[in-house]
Design a binder for these strands. Structure first.
Lengths: 183, 183
DNA sequence: AACTCATATGCACATTGTTGCATAAATTTT
DNA sequence: AAAATTTATGCAACAATGTGCATATGAGTT
């Protein structure tokens, strides 16, 4: 259901092939959405069947042929209609917390290892994000940021704020574990 | 795949019926996991078929009969094995960001409305969480917190830190929108 | 007596997501 | 010349999840 609107959004911004979209998921869009190439191709196919999309077959000399998808009038209306109503707040699942729920006096060490691993992974990710921000969104660059790039930057900011909150939480849990189950 | 380990975790803490588990998802466990009653009953069934769980049929005079599930030896081993290896970091999808990606000079007002709605909803949720913390996890109560309740508190802390980060981000985006598309 | 609610469990179907496999043209590497 | 990589698209099978419907007991309400 949701992937449909993601594709409408991306193709409304810029016509693209399935291959292009998958690459976008590996890039900036990947910070807030993801889908496999099979899922993308299948959805593009069924959205074309239901007249939301159209495509132009493009012949290329140096590379295989491709299909450039874009929105039909129906597609534009569907996107517009979707934009009109509020998005539902989504609850995130947290498998790490499920694991931690199994903590007892016999396996504290295991859980502490897991926490340390998460802390260093999260810290690494945080640094990656901060470097991206430094390289692509310096105060100078932000002053001349094209309108269509603003929300891409917002996505990066979401990534940064989320990972920092997560990191702070991981450290809290480490302390909590220390206090309740001993070192 | 993951629901299996959630159920193993919950039933290892305390034998329960499908109905009990669904109620747990409506309660504290719901802060980091959720599943519909159909999903729960179905999974309990298939886990019993694959010998991970066993159940006792309990006859009740005042209420319908029920099945009290608990882990088999195989189930305990499967849970233990799962605990041994690291949990994968999970990427969260963000449908709000998908919607915001559609921002342009013609629909800024719509997006601003959406942001304000999200801000007040998130603020309300934050207050709910903080009240829970005040009522059930005061510094005093925390000193005598039973070991098996520690991670339930950690779950609440995750909820609080996440919603606060989300709220801070929403306000950033509001400013960003103001700067880039005008009020 | 009929209705509603809480307790308790389940099936069937549709949609969504994952995994593995398959194809094919052109370029680059070995 | 053969092998690997990049670009490009897709099917089939299966697993996971969601939606709607169905059933049944006992208690309390109208």
């Amino acid at each position: 259901m949701s992937l449909k609107f993601v594709l409408l959004t991306l193709l409304d911004r810029k016509p693209a092939t399935g291959y292009d979209i998958v690459r976008e998921f590996d890039d900036a869009i990947g910070y807030f959405w993801n889908a496999s190439h099979q899922q993308v191709y299948r959805e593009l196919g069924s959205m074309t069947d239901s007249k939301l999309l159209k495509f132009k077959q493009i012949k290329q000399d140096d590379k295989p042929d491709k299909k450039l998808y874009s929105l039909s009038i129906t597609g534009k209306k569907a996107l517009q209609a979707w934009l009109e109503n509020p998005v539902k707040i989504q609850k995130n699942k947290n498998l790490l917390l499920v694991k931690l729920l199994n903590t007892n006096s016999k396996n504290v060490a295991l859980m502490q290892e897991e926490l340390e691993r998460n802390i260093s992974d999260s810290d690494a990710l945080r640094n990656t994000y901060l470097e991206l921000e430094r390289n692509y969104y310096s105060p100078q660059q932000r002053r001349t940021l094209p309108a269509e790039q603003v929300m891409i930057y917002a996505a990066l900011r979401k990534g940064i704020l989320s990972i920092e909150a997560h990191l702070a939480w991981l450290k809290e849990v480490r302390d909590l574990l220390q206090q309740s189950f001993g070192g």
